[in-house]
Amino acid sequence: MPEALATIAPVAGLGMITIRANLSRAGDAIAEASGLPIPEATRITTDGSRSLGWMSPDELLLLLPAAETAEALTALTNALAGEHALVADVSDLRAVFDVTGPKVQQVLQKLSPTDFAAFPKDGLRRTRAAQVAVAFWRQGKGFRVIGMRSTGDYLRLILENATIPGSDLEPR
């Protein structure tokens, strides 16, 4: 009996902060306040607990344990006080899933026009999963997928549909 390609698990207790700023000017301040190096374009840096993802040339997303959110918000706001920047708590904005299992990449390959052979180890890809916007990166042995909160049920459904046992993409 074949097993599911992957397991889909919702992730709770995650804090998220969006940071918009001139990264070349304010990068050091953000790095210091967030405790993480600034990621290169389309990458994500992490220390195991916190992660800092590159969303756009002037936008980062800090992911951290929910309990640390308020403190990090204050730290970032203070660090960027003299800077033209926007720091906002977006912890409730998204639906987050961890996709783990033997064929996790194939699950995403069914939904996203992403070339995984060209996807770096520390890559963060913003793209489309079927009909909704998502971002994903490697997390542990699998992938972490974030989408919008309102379409979280849809995202979970299409992820789960893509894991049907026996539906792997290997040539047969």
Partner: peptide
């Protein structure tokens, strides 16, 4: 996959 409940992403409020 775009059929049944996955036909369209349905947006739901909290």
């Amino acid at each position: 996959e775009a059929r049944g409940d996955a036909f369209q992403p349905l947006r739901k409020t909290p």
